[in-house]
Design a protein around this nucleic acid. Sequence first.
DNA 1: GTATGAGGGTTATCCGGTTCAGAGAGGGAG
DNA 2: CTCCCTCTCTGAACCGGATAACCCTCATAC
Lengths: 338, 338
Amino acid sequence: MKRPTIADIASRAGVSKVAVSYALNGQPGVSAATRARIVAIAEEIGWQPNSAARALNGARANCVGLALCRPARILGVEPFFMELISGIEGVLADRSYALLLQVVTGHEQESEVYRRWWGESRIDGVFLVDLHYSDTRVSELERLGMPVVVIGHPSESGSLSAIWSDDGEAVRETVGYLVALGHRRIARVAGLPELVHTTVRDQAFAQACEGVAEHVTVHTDYTGDEGARATRRLLSSPHRPTAIVYDNDIMAVAGLSVAQEMRVEVPRDLSIVAWDDSPLAQVVRPPLTALTRDIPAYGAHAAQRLLALIAGESVPPYEDQAAVLTPRGSTGPVHLSR
Amino acid sequence: MKRPTIADIASRAGVSKVAVSYALNGQPGVSAATRARIVAIAEEIGWQPNSAARALNGARANCVGLALCRPARILGVEPFFMELISGIEGVLADRSYALLLQVVTGHEQESEVYRRWWGESRIDGVFLVDLHYSDTRVSELERLGMPVVVIGHPSESGSLSAIWSDDGEAVRETVGYLVALGHRRIARVAGLPELVHTTVRDQAFAQACEGVAEHVTVHTDYTGDEGARATRRLLSSPHRPTAIVYDNDIMAVAGLSVAQEMRVEVPRDLSIVAWDDSPLAQVVRPPLTALTRDIPAYGAHAAQRLLALIAGESVPPYEDQAAVLTPRGSTGPVHLSR
DNA sequence: GTATGAGGGTTATCCGGTTCAGAGAGGGAG
DNA sequence: CTCCCTCTCTGAACCGGATAACCCTCATAC
């Protein structure tokens, strides 16, 4: 049983295809009575517009793309992307836009995917995440001339629209808070060093600590394993830090476990701060002080901007809310017993 | 600057569109020399087949769909779906298939999304997850006649192809292990009671405990909060269990924290088992004994089956590997001090 | 020398919808 | 009564490819 087409509706209603097209698209050119009749028939036989046929006429694909370039095991663990996607979806669904998703293994493959999707008219635009320095994807996407919203710092997004949050501010707030608690040796277990936002945080961290506290930054790949290893090394050093700031919650939890295993009591001997709050941060003991932000809202804002861009509007860079510090049990004043 | 079409290539090469079509699709009907010339030109001007035009000719959409019907906050926390998607993607990417994703808020909306995607010829098939009893989505999808792979127990999948893993077996292994360790009062903190796999586990659990151990099952919504609450209640009861099996890792971690907060030592006073292993289960102290399975592989198998179904092959129900118990530090022999 | 056939290409049509240029019908103004 | 305009609707072309059917040429077989 074939899917019904507007030709089927036309023959049933005794009018031409064109009248049906006008009627179903709310265009002028048909009387109210005819329109009602056509709409009723369309409803009755369960007609749906064929997106391919529409796309062929230069219409939008009603679809945007997102390619994620991180190993599967990290994607599974980090709530960030799933929350971001949920937020994006909320906006897209309202406008009947679909999200095309692909997990890729490298940036060349990612560019390739974008090129193909765009060439095939599958999508109207894409989100670009995990920006690097001198990111080849930016120039590639600029060349293609497709609507793009970069979720990341605008300094590296070239001519593409960006949406970002001020990680520097969050770092400063965190360091200020730790210093106020008396911490003078603060470590940071950071994510992938090639990511722009990692560097932004690195620099803000170094600057904030300058003159008020010793500081050290260790880079990892975001996995719990590396977070644990980094923590073990930090806690084994002679001048061990009294506070550690982690770049995601999974590393923070891993770090907490390492501390407990090494009989370093949290928060008495060590304060822990996690970047990006999540239920995970709240269920461990003690619950983790975290940098909270509304990631679904972040995704939603990005989606709104991409849709605006697709609609031909111009979209200035947009700074979303910075993460705010949510103090919980994992941070406390420095204990002076050593 | 328009996207190049085969007409552009044809005029450049001085042949007809048809010759170009044949050449680019590896069909007979053009000489090797002409074919090479055409391919070279296509390459040079960066031609990509327009998927809409192809789809219009009854070709496949080269795209499959997945709608997820769980609240955003749970999707973010549970690694399951992201890992499943990674696995699915691995297979799809090889065949240049794309994945259309949508987060929905209810089953009516989910059915609606499938109907629309299918009606618009956007997708060639879908995955159906989180099966319920007398699930309306099954009959709806059967009615549409579209290729579907149900990721769930075949008893409720109607005429649709199913892929599932034997949760009963995993439950029996777990209970057997706990009983061997001397446990005689075992609790289960389960997920949403309306899901088929929850019931399967419930029944297997009750059966496995029958005659060898007291047992109780508490249902939750998979969140850490409810996992914590359930644990608190269980541990407060006069006849408190000596072992608890959780339906996901986030609840297990929450439960562990509650135990520690209540000074119930793990594993001395309480053994904990988590369903679905993840880095999360391994980073807490003690690391959690977990029911491990290869979720990306599960997704990959599902994807292979969906593609086979789309290719017109018949796909029998497939039972994937059951989860296996990975003992870690959170389980141990019963301590007889009480 | 003619029939046969394969190789290499072309023309015409279709897929399902959109869009443009008109064509009748009906009504109001002069 | 005629002219013109508006309203409603239609035929035809088009989007970018796929496909069936047919045509021409040259080589081979008889």
